[in-house]
């Protein structure tokens, strides 16, 4: 079962990469782009068939390693859940 962990910098943490992307988009002529934030998506192939358990284990992974909760927040999506 596939779990997808999305890791984003918390609101309020400066995201220079997002800022640079926003600047580049404006340079390319894309008007009307507000704030841009850049994050990471991590796909996990889990040997687990119960969506609730899959979510729990993915959340634990995110807390322990995939995200640094000092600066980042995360969101877990489980396929078919």
């Amino acid at each position: 079962m596939k779990a997808t962990v999305t890791v984003m910098l918390k609101p309020g943490v400066l995201d220079p990469q997002g800022k640079a992307i926003g600047h580049a988009l404006a340079t390319l002529g894309f008007a009307g782009v507000g704030e841009v934030r850049a994050g990471k998506v991590i796909e996990l192939e889990l040997k687990e068939s119960d969506p609730a358990r899959a979510r729990a284990v993915a959340e634990e992974m995110a807390r322990k390693l995939l995200a640094n909760t000092v600066i980042e927040s995360f969101r877990v999506a489980v396929e078919g859940a």
Binding site: V13, L14, P16, Q17, A20, N68, V70, I71
Partner: peptide, 17 residues
Amino acid sequence: LTEAGLLPGALLRNAGL
């Protein structure tokens, strides 16, 4: 040390990227 929680805070990408 910050990732291990032995010191507070975090080190982000340099402001100039």
